[in-house]
Design a protein around this nucleic acid. Structure first.
Length: 598
RNA sequence: GCCAAAAUAGCUCAGUGGUAGAGCAACGCUCUCGUAAAGCGUAGGUCGUCGGUUCAAAUCCGACUUUUGGCUCCA
């Protein structure tokens, strides 16, 4: 997958369209109250910005000293007091000059800077409550009486660059959450707890799926046997589906000579994500951060005719990218990962069908993995001079992306100018079981690489022409996808993915032999089965299997041995069924085939 | 990389300057058991690493490593 040259636009966490919302006003007002409390505690504080965000608010400050947990407690106390005082929020439209004088006199440099950024046609307004006045567009609640002193909580302290630019001063950001009433706050905090329980890093440890090792390097994932089984199930399905959908599978090297990366341009624009070269026979070799140049080499291995296009070439390609130490995060942000990458090379008149096909295929895969809530983002050509390729191609490419989205009836937003310099793209965001959005799939045009590598095909008219090239990753990276999958299912994988599908539990040692025999039979049938012949009692074994979230427990004793059957207990509870071994095998096979949960 | 916090047994955690602890897991013994934890016992840690302060450091200080929450970036 090519792409991901750095995007210029910044991700904005603030949510739109919430200005009308009461809670939004509450949160925004809460930010002001917090700023008032902070200024009261540290009068020399310089205040920066303090918006409402999803679930809460924050405010950035330049403080005389770092904050501690106790400071947060103290600030919370002051906030509660301020709220109880019932201070009124008063809006005042002011002239630019008035505002400037005011903030100059208050020595609020950041506010002066913000003031400059306000367009000349916009009205400048200030909000005051108590002793605190802020440059602010509003809206706010009428009075702090509308805020509930028991329905907010300051959550964390973080560093944040002024205006999000690391060249600027680092400020102290205080995050808080605020709700209409204490009950809502409790529910929110409970939700945070639930999210913690599903955290893939926690479950990865509890279920023995993967690890990382300080001594061996951060951001590098070690897949344990159980994680490996799940990965295998994912990849097997992935390969089978790709073959069914007209893809060929490639394998490419992990390193390439500098020529490759110079030609692709990565050494120029992707350099900061690439690792230093290694010397081989006096040549510089780079470990790959992307697979695309390799696929292009295969394309260029021979003359290509229009008759063999489209080519759909996929690879589970493992790439390594340098990521700054502070951004690494479990499986979601790592330094080595496997992309489920593919490149499509086609003629311009094939492009529309190809895009539609990719999108369909993508949605099909997401459904199989239990995700159905999907939103598309269409990113179009960046502004003047910031992209390569001619207008007509951009237009055609963008339109074929749009048509595909509309044909599939997907909800989508257009990100005007948000495309990469080499082409427009569609990103898909999926919603997980907890309603969180994750960006996984990306489908990107590339007008750059075919040019750089001088890729051609011989058309009907005997002339050499430039093929269209599309990069796409459906799951994104296997690591990240796996992390999201673990959280989506909370570790309770559907049968087809579960590392252990059935655990056989003899009621007593006397039945261990039958249990072992049963296991052999299940393995022979292609099922993932284990037998628990430990010293523990049956109840303890059940409890353990339950905690490991194994879909099926097969309890076997005298009755089952006599009748060559199993007593099936599902992890969902204790409804039990007795069935013959053959029945259980076909029962499970069907669940796997249909990708049912249990 | 930057700001802040953290790192104690395989896991979860207690231990605030004076001889390293608990529960679970592991191992051993007893029990031979029908749908979420039987009982008893044993072993396990140079308290992330290196340096400093101190008569004495898990504890105080510094550097480094890793992790966490953010900033930035992104699959």
């Amino acid at each position: 997958m090519n792409t991901w040259y750095r995007e210029e636009r910044r991700y904005n966490r603030r949510i739109k369209n919430m200005t009308e919302d009461k809670l939004h006003k509450v949160r925004h007002s809460m930010a002001h109250v917090m700023a008032e409390a902070v200024l009261e505690k540290f009068p020399e504080t310089k205040i920066a910005i303090g918006p409402a965000i999803e679930d809460g608010f924050y405010y950035d400050f330049e403080l005389p000293r770092p904050l501690t947990e106790e400071d947060l407690e103290d600030i919370s106390e002051r906030m509660r007091r301020i709220i109880k005082e019932g201070q009124e929020f008063q809006r005042k439209a002011v002239s630019r000059k008035e505002a400037e004088e005011f903030f100059r006199q208050q020595k609020q440099d950041y506010k002066l800077e913000l003031l400059e950024a306000i367009g000349p046609e916009e009205e400048v307004s200030m909000y005051t409550q108590g002793n605190f006045t802020d440059l602010c567009r509003g809206p706010h609640v009428e009075s702090t009486k509308e805020l509930n002193p028991q329905a907010f909580q300051l959550l964390s302290i973080a560093g944040a660059y002024w205006r999000g630019d690391e060249k600027n001063q680092m400020l102290t950001r205080i995050y808080g959450t605020a709700w209409n009433n204490p009950k809502e706050l409790r529910q929110y905090l409970q939700r945070l707890e639930d999210i913690k329980k599903r955290d893939h890093r926690r479950l990865g440890k509890e279920l023995d799926l993967f690890s990382t090792h300080e001594e061996a390097g951060p951001g590098l994932i070690y897949w344990h046997p159980k994680g490996g089984r799940i990965r295998l199930a994912i990849e097997d399905y992935w390969r089978a589906e790709h073959l069914k959908n007209g893809y060929e599978l490639l394998y490419s090297p992990h390193v390439g000579k500098s020529w490759l990366w110079e030609t692709s341009g990565h050494l120029g624009f992707y350099n900061e994500n690439m690792y230093s070269p290694m010397k081989v026979d006096e040549n510089d070799y780079y470990i790959k951060p992307m697979n695309c140049p390799f696929h292009i080499m295969i394309y260029k291995n021979g003359l290509r005719s229009y008759r063999e296009l489209p080519l759909r070439w996929a690879e589970l390609g493992t790439v390594y990218r340098y990521e700054r130490s502070g951004v690494l995060h479990g499986l979601l942000r790592v330094r080595g990962f496997t992309q489920d990458d593919a490149h499509i090379f086609c003629t311009p008149d094939q492009i529309e069908d190809e895009i539609l096909e990719v999108l369909r295929f993508s949605l099909h895969m997401w459904k199989a993995f239990g995700f159905s809530d999907i939103k598309a983002y269409l990113a179009t050509r960046p502004g003047e001079g910031k992209s390569v390729g001619d207008d007509a191609s951009w237009q055609q490419a963008t339109e074929s992306l749009r048509k595909a989205i509309e044909a599939e009836g997907l909800d989508y937003e257009v990100d005007e100018g948000g495309g990469a310099f080499y082409g427009p793209k569609i990103d898909l965001k999926i919603k997980d079981a907890l309603g969180r959005e994750w960006q996984m799939t990306t489908v990107q045009f590339d007008f750059n690489l075919p040019e750089r590598f001088d890729m051609t095909f011989v058309d009907r008219d005997g002339k050499e022409k430039r093929p269209y090239m599309v990069h796409r990753a459906l799951l994104g990276s296997i690591e990240r996808f796996f992390g999201v999958l673990v959280e989506h299912y909370g570790g309770a994988f559907p049968v087809w993915l579960a590392p252990v599908q059935a655990r056989i539990i003899p009621v007593a040692e006397a039945f261990n032999d039958y249990a072992r025999e049963l296991k052999a039979q299940l393995l022979a049938a292609g099922l993932r089965a284990e037998v628990d012949v430990s010293e523990a009692r049956m109840n303890a074994k059940i409890r353990e299997a339950q905690q490991e979230k194994i879909p099926y427990m097969l309890i076997v004793g005298e009755k089952e041995r006599e009748s060559r059957s199993v007593s099936l207990r599902r992890r969902s509870g204790n409804q039990q069924e007795v069935m013959s071994i053959e029945e259980f095998i076909s029962f499970t096979r069907q669940k796997i085939e249909n990708k049912e949960e249990l």
